[in-house]
Amino acid sequence: MVRQAFSPGDLLVAVPHLEDPNFRRSVVLLLHHDREGALGVVLNRPLGVDLGAVLPSWQDVVSEPATLFQGGPVGLDGALGVATLRAGTEPPAPVTRISPAFGLVDLDGDPDVLGGLLGLRVFAGHAGWGSGQLDAEVAAGDWYVVPALPSDAIAPDPAVLWRQVLRRQGGAMAIVSTFPDDPRLN
């Protein structure tokens, strides 16, 4: 079901005609949204950089593939850790809950105290929107807003996440999931 209202923990799924290379066929987990703006991470852009080369102490606690992901075009020199949380449990100390299923991880903390998480992914950079910008993009039809599943943030095959998320919505969105990358070749 496509929604106009959204909150942290929701997914923003790029419509097929969104051509910005930073967001083409992207699935963004919304981490923050208020009157000042919004912030999220692109879930389906693995960089192919082994996480151990950048944050060696976190290598053994991240979900497969154990690579760094490009969270978006903003702040590429910084990293965000996103955890998938178990329902009904309190997250460990270095994790701040942002929604029932997701939390932000303090990457300066101790990775050895992260027991009880369903998964963890590390993102270089993030997606950011100024005041009212994301609301305008959603209203213009650039993004589908859909509920996230905890498994979306740690999908083992991020290359198919865009199609999977759309397909599970059913109806017209399931049909959209079959749109070719380049309709001119159809």
Rank of each mutant, 00 (worst) to 15 (best):
A83H: 10
G141Q: 09
V74W: 08
V145H: 06
G109D: 15
P158K: 01
V113I: 07
W162N: 08
A79Q: 03
V145W: 12
A172G: 00
A172C: 00
I98E: 02
G109T: 14
D106W: 15
H126M: 15
V145C: 06
D181E: 13
D77S: 11
T178W: 06
L104R: 03
A172I: 05
D152A: 13
D135Q: 11
S99Q: 05
L134C: 01
P94T: 08
S151G: 15
A79F: 08
G75P: 07
V82S: 04
A153H: 15
A153C: 14
A83W: 12
L107M: 09
L185R: 12
F123S: 01
A127W: 01
A83M: 07
G78W: 04
P183K: 13
G132K: 14
A124P: 05
V105H: 04
R163P: 00
V105F: 01
G132T: 06
G116F: 04
I154E: 04
T84V: 15
D152R: 14
I175V: 14
G141S: 11
V122D: 04
M173V: 02
G103D: 01
S151W: 14
A155H: 15
R163K: 13
E137H: 09
A140I: 00
V122F: 04
Q164F: 11
P92L: 04
P147R: 14
G171I: 03
R167Q: 10
T84I: 05
L134D: 00
I175T: 11
G119F: 15
E90T: 09
P150H: 03
V74I: 12
R167G: 11
G81P: 03
G170E: 02
G128L: 01
P73H: 04
H126C: 15
L85P: 12
L80F: 09
A148D: 00
P183N: 07
A153E: 10
V138E: 05
R168M: 03
F102H: 11
Q169P: 00
G75Y: 02
L80S: 03
L85Q: 13
L104D: 03
D112H: 14
A101G: 12
L107E: 07
L134Y: 05
L161H: 13
F179H: 14
Y144C: 03
A139P: 07
